[in-house]
């Protein structure tokens, strides 16, 4: 596979480490009322779509950036690649 890195262009997937669902960005707060429940949902409850799926890839043998890659699980078509740090900011993780 080839991942079109937002900074470096198309890169071979052998340079990457694959982690999984990009919802891992949405880590709950410890202070939340239902923190235990929220963490349970965060860690264990995942969608498993046949189709577009946002997942985290790490450019380990590259620029060491975490990426959010939108990949179709039925065709491997990659429709979007973003820096995870930008995505995290967009999801309100600037603190």
């Amino acid at each position: 596979m080839i991942i079109n890195h937002p900074l470096l262009g198309p890169r071979d997937s052998s340079e990457f480490y694959h982690l999984g669902d990009a919802t891992l960005i949405d880590r709950p707060n410890r202070e939340d009322v239902n923190a235990a429940e929220a963490f349970y949902e965060y860690l264990y409850v995942r969608d498993n779509p046949a189709g577009k799926y946002c997942e985290l890839w790490y450019h380990e043998q590259g620029d060491r950036s975490w990426l959010v890659v939108t990949r179709d699980t039925t065709t491997h078509e990659i429709s979007e690649v973003k820096l995870a740090s930008d995505e995290a900011r967009a999801r309100g993780r600037s603190v």
Partner: peptide, 9 residues
């Protein structure tokens, strides 16, 4: 560029 050669960074 950073890449890999025979599995080595």
């Amino acid at each position: 560029e950073r890449t890999n050669i025979e599995h080595m960074g």
